[in-house]
């Protein structure tokens, strides 16, 4: 049915509740599918998957060849420079470099239960919003307000740990404390993630034995999403 037909029925008062609900359901599905699709499109782009394939230019073969050679040469130079920088100039060990690469991909916090009018829930909501915008210092401030009210839960401590890890000047030592507090608050919540992130913090602090123990827990956990990455780091540690 066309939109103006629905409108006519609505205006005449004969559009049934069920008809409208069905229509609303379809419209909401389409609206949010579109939004989610756009979000996934960005994520796919980050993986190099695009809707439109790369356009083949109509330049002459010779121009293309020269440009291709130059591009290949530039890539080799970049790789060589990168390798030299990583292995001869970086103060980080190879395992720390691996850990660091994981720390550059922020964890996506679940929006969870942040609805509510009281100040605690508002602070949690603001903290989540700041976290999503990668404003980790700001997010930490809001969560510290929740903590100062004695209302912090495992999820708050966990998020504070993440903020301390991701902020401009990472504080891995205190991040580990936050993960301990999260575990103390609820021994079951976020355990896979806590083992994983604790291991990353410990690697950055050079506490390799402690990191190894946490990595082994990640590998042993069936529900962990980081088993393969943990195994790679553990292999590099041994």
């Amino acid at each position: 049915m066309k939109l103006n037909e629905y409108k006519k029925k609505h205006d005449q008062g004969v559009l049934k509740e069920e008809e409208w609900e069905q229509m609303a359901q379809q419209l909401l599905n389409a609206k949010f599918d579109k939004e989610l699709g756009a979000e996934w499109e960005k994520k796919l782009q980050a993986k190099g998957v695009y809707r439109t394939p790369p356009i083949q230019g109509s330049r002459s073969l010779r121009t293309v060849n020269i440009r291709q050679y130059l591009s290949v040469a530039a890539v080799f130079l970049l790789i060589a420079a990168g390798t030299w920088f990583m292995f001869f100039r970086s103060p980080l060990s190879p395992t720390q470099q691996l850990a660091s690469s994981h720390l550059e991909q922020p964890f996506r916090m679940n929006s969870g239960n942040t609805r509510g009018d009281d100040s605690i829930e508002k602070n949690r909501g603001m903290a989540l919003e700041a976290f999503s915008n990668r404003q980790y210092e700001k997010s930490l401030n809001y969560l510290q307000k929740v903590e100062s009210e004695g209302q912090a839960k495992a999820s708050d401590y966990f998020q504070m740990g993440l903020c301390l890890m991701y902020q401009v000047k990472p504080d891995y030592q205190n991040a580990l404390k936050m993960y301990d507090l999260a575990t103390a608050s609820d021994a079951m919540a976020y355990q896979d993630e806590i083992h994983w992130f604790s291991a990353l913090c410990q690697l950055m602090l050079g506490q390799n034995q402690a990191a190894k123990s946490n990595l082994e827990k990640v590998i042993a956990s069936k529900s962990s999403r980081n088993q393969l990455d943990a195994q790679k780091i553990l292999d590099a540690l041994l």
């Binding site: 066309k2 939109l3 379809q26 419209l27 599905n29 609206k31």
Partner: peptide, 9 residues
Amino acid sequence: NEELELESL
């Protein structure tokens, strides 16, 4: 959703 028009969205 195929039946939905762009205008409705």
